[in-house]
C-alpha cells in the first residue's frame, strides 16, 4: 500500500540535477518547453527527447513515483492525437505540400505526411513531460518559491504555489488514510468489488478529504500570520542559493537551444521541417 516510493513530490537526492539552483532549473524548463512548443523540427525534437530521457535516468527517479501520472498523461496524449487526426486528417499534406497515401478511407485517408505530423506532436510530449516532471520531483518547493519570486512573481503567489506542491504528498497520504477508514466502515474498495461500486465508494472519501484539508489550510494560514507572513511588501529566503558555474552553463545551454530553434526556423522557412520535398 502507501509508502514513500509512491509519492509524487520532491524528495531529496544527490545527483547533479538536485544540486542545481532552482531558478536555473525553472528557466531551463521554461525555455526548453517553449522551444519544443514552437518548433516542429523533427531532428531537434528527437535530440531533446534523448536529452530529457537521459536527464530523467540521471536523476534516478523511481518508476513507482510517477507511474500513475505518466499513465494519465499517456492516456490524454493518445486521446489528443486521435482527435487531431479526426478533425483534419488532411492537415499533414497541407503543411508538407505533398501527399503519399498509406490507407485509402475517404475522409479518413491516412497519409504519410499526416503520420509524420502526428509523430512530431508525439515527440513534443515526450520532450516536455519528462522535463516538467523532473523539475517538480527534483526541486525543493521552497527553493522553487524563492526562484519564482526571483524572476519577478509576487512572493505571496510564489509561496502559495510552493505550498500547493508541498501538500500534494500530504493530501495523497490523507487520501489513503481516509480511504482506509471508509473501507473499515464497510465500503469495499478492494478488487473484490465491481468497478462501479469502487468509483461510487471513492466519492465517500472526498467529503472528509475536503474537510480535513480545509482544516489544515486554516491552521497553516493562522500559523503563517502569527509569524508575520504578508506583513511586508518583500521577503527574503533562507534557502536562496547563489549561482555556481554549473548554473551558468545550464542557462547558457538553454539559451543555445532556443537559438538553435530560431536558426532552424530560418533554415526551414517556418516551424516545420519538411523531409518530403
Amino acid at each position: 500500500m502507501h509508502d514513500e516510493s509512491q509519492i509524487l513530490g520532491y524528495q531529496p537526492g544527490n545527483s547533479f540535477i538536485y544540486q542545481l539552483n532552482a531558478t536555473t532549473k525553472l528557466v531551463f524548463m521554461l525555455l526548453v518547453s517553449i522551444a519544443c512548443m514552437i518548433t516542429y523540427d523533427t531532428r531537434f525534437l528527437i535530440a531533446i527527447c534523448v536529452l530529457s530521457i537521459f536527464l530523467f535516468k540521471e536523476a534516478k527517479i523511481k518508476w513507482s513515483q510517477i507511474s500513475f501520472i505518466v499513465k494519465l498523461i499517456v492516456a490524454f496524449m493518445i486521446l489528443n492525437l486521435i482527435f487531431v487526426f479526426i478533425f483534419q486528417p488532411s492537415y499533414g499534406e497541407s503543411i508538407y505540400y505533398s501527399k503519399s497515401i498509406l490507407i485509402h478511407a475517404g475522409y479518413f485517408t491516412l497519409t504519410l505526411q499526416e503520420v509524420f505530423y502526428l509523430f512530431n506532436l508525439f515527440l513534443k510530449y515526450v520532450c516536455s513531460i519528462p522535463i516538467v516532471l523532473l523539475f517538480l520531483l527534483t526541486t525543493n518547493p521552497s527553493q522553487f518559491a524563492a526562484s519564482l519570486n526571483k524572476i519577478g512573481i509576487s512572493y505571496k503567489i510564489s509561496y502559495a504555489v510552493s505550498l500547493a506542491l508541498r501538500y500534494i504528498p500530504d493530501i495523497q497520504n490523507s487520501y489513503w488514510d481516509i480511504s482506509a477508514a471508509q473501507q473499515a466502515r464497510g465500503i469495499e474498495l478492494s478488487k473484490k468489488a465491481s468497478l462501479g461500486k469502487r468509483i461510487k465508494g471513492t466519492l465517500n472519501i472526498i467529503m472528509p478529504l475536503i474537510f480535513s484539508s480545509l482544516e489544515r489550510i486554516d491552521a497553516i494560514s493562522t500559523a503563517m500570520q502569527l509569524r508575520r507572513f504578508g506583513s511586508k511588501k518583500k521577503r527574503t529566503w533562507y534557502v536562496t542559493q547563489s549561482f555556481k558555474k554549473e548554473d551558468y552553463l545550464v542557462m547558457i545551454a538553454a539559451v543555445i537551444l532556443v537559438l538553435i530553434v530560431i536558426v532552424l526556423w530560418q533554415l526551414n522557412h517556418g516551424r516545420f521541417y519538411n523531409p518530403f520535398i
Partner: peptide, 12 residues
C-alpha cells in the same frame, strides 16, 4: 526556524 526572519526581510 527562519520563517519569521524571512518575513522581516532579514538578509540570508
Amino acid at each position: 526556524i527562519a520563517f519569521a526572519l524571512e518575513n522581516d526581510c532579514q538578509p540570508q
